[in-house]
Design a protein around this nucleic acid. Structure first.
Lengths: 213, 213, 213, 213
DNA sequence: CATGAATGAGCATTCATTCAT
DNA sequence: TATGAATGAATGCTCATTCAT
């Protein structure tokens, strides 16, 4: 899926094509892109950060756009790999509380916030990149949570007409006073206790609305 | 070196400094910055859009950063001027529904979304700008809604330990499936009916959680 | 005709728009292009030769191609302005001899030869430029000589079915052993005496073929 | 550093050094150089066209210049091998007409024109290459034609003081309206009928001037 | 104050060349 | 010998900024 025209290593047994240079570039470039934004990042800076020459960048990526796309793709993969515990057998309150805290912690990690910020910033000029990130990261999480909620609804704990809407509502409610001050640099990343407090409040409101009577 | 306060206009009677050139520049520049982002906007383009020469830009603003800051400042002022009907006498459900719809419509207007996107994008490099926007636009709205909610709590309609948290929760819950797909360009701006549906659901959840029993 | 989007001088009385910078750039660039060829000439070198900054080049010309086109256009104008004495009243032999010598001298001047070489070299990638040069320089001279020949034919001195073909034949015959060794750098520019000898021989052959009997 | 003479092939019986890789490179590179010019041709493109790696290019040729020189050398050899029928026993008019047509056809073939163009273009920067091409292709043809003309002069058909000058005059006169429009891309390659017409006219003029009386 | 011509540092990108394998 | 990954200098071009008028 993410295969590119990069030179294939000759003597590796397993198919990890992303080893060595290509991966090294992506790893180095991610930080630069995320810290400075697409326009703010220069290929020279990226080359330095990745520990390769500028020319090598172009051996593995056709141009700056493609390199950026690969970074976002990688970010999608990694953020998509984050697994929350949606075991349908677990009780709703604990599950939501744990998920909420983990989700906010992810969003408010320097990496998480930067990815959201950087991709959102470029979305107008590179809609495909924006859509891809939304689909593979945000919508994916929403779907997974939605599936869990539906399972609990079938189980009789919850009652809701639209599980995915409910999922997104919960994800949003958890952000409440946490994410926006952080992403706008109005406040530093929230402390775990603060997160717990806000998520707790969110869980209470969510359950008040959707608990089966 | 060049002054930041606008030159005193010679022929105006009242001291409205923003009347003439300075204002004209801000008005022209806003669109360019919001559509193309800070880095994407060039001073030449801005000069053209504002109908002045590039040199004149530097008569009123020390550099590109300062001009951008002024734009955001102006944006704050204007978005802060948006008044929602928080008449403490109005009933909660209607007030929330109306506010929610208006708020989402504002966020999902090309201008509204662009401002959020543009400021968020630059927040890492220009934290002051980000903080200022957050404080004057988002937090301000939160405070106003919070004040209203508190009034209704005092009135006995609602019961809540933290009115501002509740306010932000409501603002977030209204965004649910609407704002993020829009800002990431995964979907076009939501239709009014869709907004109404999501806001409705948000109001229901909010009241389930905070209605006084 | 050759008007471009260059800034117009404000206080000149006559309409010489090409004064100052634009002209200065063209003059400086010509040498660089002609000596090094289109690809060999760098915009940096051109800027240095013209005594302006690299940025200024782009104020007057959209890109390297356009600058080159302007050079060729200028060259066409100037080479087109070269006037040979085609007074229809003059006798054929003298006229041809004088024209032939002047023409070869033009072709074998460093400037003349370089223009031919440089434009010919780029003709495959920029056919318009090649065609323009051919039309405005070579074909124009052919037409003027053709017109003269026709006049002399009408006068009864010459007899020829196709005056323009005859004109080109004469132009080619004059080059004989002179132009190609020069343009291929196999020999330095021919001395006037050598030119006279070859042109003389060409005139004799031409008149043998086309003198009216 | 790297040798210029080709590596001694290990498995060929006869000493034909140009058989294998070196020849393969030259064959592949010729088209690229001729189509794109010296500067326009990249070593990467050449490697691809020749079906070898970029590194291999440098095994056989010290650098791009040396490779180009070898191409021209090869071109000289091949164009020098083109044999026109200069049988001294053949009658002058037929011989000239046939040679003229063949010569123009050669010049106006894509390959022929491109070689002339490409070498002429580089002659200022690589005078040796230009001279070599002139000597081995153009002058050689001139000498052969000159030798034939002299033979016919000795035979009594023609009378001329300088056979090589006469040869070049004929070669030039044949080009008349054909070669320059073609090489400047002002017109497509001339049709055979058109060539015949112009060459015919050239033959007539030539014989009028040099036929023994 | 207003202009816009001029600047030069900076950018993304290309490409001849090298070298370890 | 043959490879192709890696290099880094050089290129065309942009743009924030300055300054004489």
């Amino acid at each position: 899926m993410t295969r590119h025209a990069a030179p294939a290593p000759v003597m590796t047994i397993d198919g990890d094509e992303d080893t060595s240079k290509r991966r090294q570039i992506i790893d180095g470039a991610r930080g630069v892109f995320m810290n400075l934004g697409f326009d703010g990042a220069s290929m020279g800076e990226i080359a330095r950060a990745a520990g390769v020459s500028k020319g090598t960048l172009y051996v593995y990526f056709a141009d700056k756009n493609r390199l950026f796309e690969a970074i976002v793709e990688q970010e999608c993969l990694e953020q998509g790999r984050v697994v929350f515990n949606f075991d349908p057998a677990r009780d709703v309150e604990t599950t939501l509380r744990e998920f909420g805290c983990a989700y906010i912690q992810l969003l408010c990690r320097p990496d998480g916030g930067s990815a959201v910020r950087t991709v959102m910033a470029i979305a107008e000029r590179m809609p495909d990149v924006g859509k891809r990130f939304y689909d593979n990261v945000i919508a994916l999480t929403m779907e997974r949570l939605g599936t869990y909620l539906k399972a609990r609804a079938d189980h009789g704990d919850l009652a809701m007409p639209d599980a995915e809407l409910a999922a997104m509502q919960f994800m949003q409610v958890c952000q409440a006073t946490l994410f926006q001050p952080y992403i706008f640099q109005a406040r530093p990343a929230p402390a775990p206790a603060e997160i717990a407090r806000v998520v707790d409040s969110g869980v209470r409101m969510f359950l008040a609305g959707y608990r089966a009577r």
